[in-house]
Nucleic acid binder design. Structure first.
Length: 492
RNA sequence: GGCGCUAUCGUCUAGGGGUUAGGACGGAAGAUUCUCAAUCUUCAAACCCGGGUUCGAUUCCCGGUAGCGCUACCA
């Protein structure tokens, strides 16, 4: 950071796909750093790859960012700044630090066999005279502009990374990389560095996959006289988020679990999701795990970032959505749900329930929420944990479930008949129900549990449910009696 | 192939020349209880390998191995 000013950081996604969890974490770390240091967050779309960019991707990235709910102060699109990039490239060329490469663009550039030899690129055009270069350019021959990496003196390019420490690499190991493509479009390296300088970015916080690129960037910054900015651009590279098999995350390979919107749609709370991501590759160095955004902001420093890649422990083929996600993410989410005020939870659940095809009022939801809050880990769980509150008719269930432990169908029948009678005249509130049903159990000579099980199953269609009395109280007498009647029908 | 980065329980991590190597998730067991959850308690579970330095290395150094990244007119 400059001594005079505040930090300026940027998140620079390239719109070639949806926002994936790794990018989201990079964004979050940038945001936290900006907040922690009282700096500015810049969002920059690095869209210089015309071939692969899509509008759909831009939309889905914004959709993901919007869900995260973290803001930024400035927003740019690289494609609208091409003139600047070219001008800066030209400046480097004028200084003799870049040269025109008239080699026709290879079609199979990405598939060159690297295992053959130590050196990859042949700088055939590097020695071209300026006169000939100018002549061929004037004649309209297309060319790429390449950086002329210093070859004399065996220089080491150095920089200090806030996470990985002192880095250095011999110029002999850096090839002459492209600044401008033959169609005049800047490459990522050129556009990114030009913008970082122009935007007065103070800290470049990005994925560790860029660590080797940074040497090239240092070279560009030097050619651009970035030192005139009055401060040194600092780097912080983040360990990568990888799949359980250690491989880089990809949609093709790992499916929707790598997309931010998948978490949103499955019922993650943004706070929990952010919290989870922060714990991957960063630690507050004390034993805190559940941390609010404020706590994260306060605790966040670049020094506390780890160096080893972090596995995001999802399962690709899982039976339920819950099992798909990293168990820690799910657990964190449950912590946030449990801590949420019931009114708020009820409001949030409303959308999920309605999307699930049920109709329920907010009032009703407020009654239900406290009963299911501690039984939910994801918001979407409401559909499986509380469906019987919303359904007119229960989903089909096996009559055998009505039979209590150490009992038989006759006992279930006896219990339900008794319940029908008692519940017809008992006030539908927790305590009266509690007293009446326990008394009834005693009268029948069955254990409380044996009394409750048939009722629970008849009324909810399942053996696991929220507390019976509060459930009945919410359901009401009419629905309860009707369902008990149906239960009796199943037994006969 | 070249260059670089990394290496503590299954996973996320703390720690650091001498520790019973700590926490969390997940797992197991128990308590509680009308079921399920929640909650609480307990248990199992790790320093990649080999040298060196040292009185003493999991920690520092070197080597190996493994993983990952970069090696494009992708980002």
């Amino acid at each position: 950071m400059s001594d005079s000013g505040k930090s300026r950081v940027r998140f620079a996604p390239s719109p070639t796909g949806f926002l994936h969890v790794g990018s989201a974490r990079t964004f979050i770390f940038n945001w936290l750093f900006a907040r922690h240091t009282g700096g500015t967050m810049v969002l920059r779309l690095d869209d210089t790859d015309v071939e692969r960019n899509t509008d759909a991707s831009v939309e889905s990235i914004f959709e993901g960012l919007k869900w995260l709910g973290l803001d930024w102060q400035e927003e740019y699109k690289q494609s609208e700044r091409l003139a600047l990039h070219r001008e800066m490239a030209q400046r480097i060329f004028e200084k003799g630090m870049a040269y025109r490469d008239f080699t026709p663009a290879g079609k199979d550039e990405g598939e060159r066999d690297r295992s053959a030899g130590p050196w990859l690129f042949e700088a055939t055009m590097r020695g071209l005279s300026r006169e000939e270069s100018d002549r061929r350019a004037a004649a309209g021959e297309p060319f790429a502009l390449r950086f002329r990496v210093p070859r004399e003196g065996g220089e080491e390019i150095k920089f200090s990374d806030a996470v990985y420490g002192e880095q250095s690499k011999a110029t002999a190991d850096i090839e002459d990389f492209a600044l401008l493509r033959s169609d005049g479009m800047p490459t990522y390296h050129m556009a990114s560095c030009a913008d970082d300088v122009d935007m007065r970015i103070s800290h470049i916080i990005r994925g560790q996959d860029h660590l080797p690129n940074t040497f090239k960037h240092v070279l560009i910054f030097r050619a651009l006289d970035a030192s005139r900015l009055g401060y040194e651009i600092r780097f912080a590279h983040l360990p990568l988020l990888v799949a359980p098999d250690g491989a880089k995350l990809s949609k093709r390979k790992h499916g929707p679990v790598v997309s931010v919107t998948t978490y949103r749609d499955a019922g993650f709370l943004r706070q929990a999701f952010i919290n989870f991501l922060c714990l991957l590759g960063w630690s507050p160095k004390d034993d805190r795990e559940v941390m609010s955004l404020d706590e994260l902001t306060q605790a966040f420093t670049l020094e506390n970032i780890n160096r080893a890649n972090a596995v995001i422990n999802f399962k690709e083929a899982a039976a339920s959505p819950e099992e798909t996600f990293d168990p820690k993410a799910v657990w964190l989410n449950s912590q946030y749900i449990h801590a949420m005020p019931v009114e708020e939870l009820a409001e949030r659940l409303l959308g999920t329930v309605r999307a699930g095809g049920y109709d329920v009022s907010l009032e009703k939801m407020k009654q239900i929420a406290p009963l299911i809050r501690e039984r939910m880990r994801l918001l979407a769980d409401v559909l499986t944990v509380a469906d019987f509150f919303f359904r007119k008719e229960l989903a089909p269930y096996d009559a055998a479930l009505l039979v209590p432990q150490k009992g038989d169908a006759a006992m279930a029948n006896k219990v339900l008949e008794k319940a029908r009678e008692v519940l017809a005249r008992t006030e539908f509130a927790h305590d009266p129900l509690d007293q009446a049903l326990r008394a009834a159990a005693q009268e029948l000579g069955v254990k409380a549990g044996q009394m409750f099980t048939p009722i629970r199953v008849a009324v909810t269609g399942r053996t696991a449910s929220p507390g019976l009395f509060e459930t009945l109280a919410v359901l009401g007498r009419e629905v309860t009696l009707e369902r008990i009647e149906r239960g009796l029908g199943k037994l006969s």
